[in-house]
Write a protein that binds this DNA or RNA. Structure first.
Length: 292
DNA sequence: ATCCCGGTTAAGTTAC
DNA sequence: GTAACTTAACCGGGAT
């Protein structure tokens, strides 16, 4: 479920919890050969930048034993390497590199560093293991004490509650960036929709101008239907499965996997191939593709 | 003792 | 096949 209170949605590469020296046979070498984890995908790196140091519960590496790297360690290392890369890119730019920085998440890093520079005290509270100093900012060429947008404080932050867990979410970016931050903070991996409601049950759009305060995160419960499965040759019903769908893509995935053109309500005639026409709790059967 | 940071090593990938 | 490049992982020195 969402928001287990621990590290939310570590990048896939980090999630591997890379086990060094893993082998099928007997191998009791003390020091396993260095084995790299998967390279972080750009999206994962972006998530890390967005999350920065919000995982306060993982301020110290855990679950590290011989041949084991913890997610915090991997994230910390990745963050350090990102800072190094950023500084290098910045220096190259200043040295007259000409073109745009080649670092993939250069803009995100720059914005984050600027934002943090505005709010060192706040960062110190939420950021217990992914730290960086003013020296980094200076070296990186980020003007100290610059304030954008006339907000005059540490950036706009809202509280988002989901179950027993609450996360601080910065809302200085675009609507997409705010959504990404919420997804990362609560580990939302699926495509299911979500929205924020304030104390008066008013649904708010994701907006940097949204009122500050505490919001409750609501997740789309999806549309649950029952599907009758038939034995191919005899057309005998063999089982009924329950499926929860959140988006038309989910429905298309289901149809594609089964080789169906659409769904038909039991006893009905209409072919359905989009989510809006499905009824919660209704029973459907799959319609095979012609020639399939 | 611990943390931070720059530098280095080496696994993995890409280009030729 | 291998040279060049990228980047995760590691190391060690300095600051506190």
């Amino acid at each position: 479920m969402v928001g287990n209170g621990e590290l939310a949605a570590p990048p896939a590469a980090a999630t591997m919890m890379m086990i060094l020296g893993e082998s099928s046979g007997e191998d009791h070498e003390i020091k396993a050969p260095k084995k790299r984890a998967e390279t972080w995908a750009q999206e994962e790196t972006r998530s890390l930048i967005i999350l920065r140091g919000r995982w306060t519960g993982f301020s110290t590496p855990q679950n590290e034993g011989p041949g084991l790297r913890s997610v915090p360690t991997m994230c910390t290392d990745k963050w350090r390497n990102l800072l190094k890369e950023f500084k290098k890119s910045k220096q190259q730019c200043r040295a007259g590199g000409g073109g745009p920085p080649k670092m993939s998440c250069y803009r995100e890093m720059e914005e984050l560093l600027k934002e943090r520079n505005r709010c060192p005290a706040e960062d110190a509270k939420v950021d217990s293991y992914l730290q960086f100093s003013d020296k980094v900012l200076e070296d990186a060429g980020v003007p100290y004490g610059s304030v954008e947008g006339g907000e005059g404080h540490c950036g706009r932050v809202i509280m988002v509650k989901c179950g027993n867990f609450t996360r601080k979410i910065g809302i200085n970016g675009s609507a997409e960036a705010i959504k990404d931050a919420i997804k990362s903070a609560f580990g939302l991996r699926t495509r299911r929709a979500f929205w924020l409601e304030d104390g008066d049950a008013v649904v708010h759009s994701f907006d940097r101008e949204m009122p500050l305060g505490t919001y409750t995160l609501h997740l789309d419960q999806g549309l649950t239907i029952k599907i009758c499965l038939y034995e191919e040759a005899e057309q005998l019903q063999v089982s009924t499965v329950e499926k929860t769908l959140y988006t038309d893509d989910d429905l298309r995935d289901l149809l594609g996997r089964r080789g169906w053109a659409g769904l038909r309500e039991l006893g009905g005639f209409r072919t359905i191939d989009n989510l809006d026409e499905l009824q919660h709790g209704a029973v459907y059967e799959g319609l095979r593709l012609l020639g399939g």
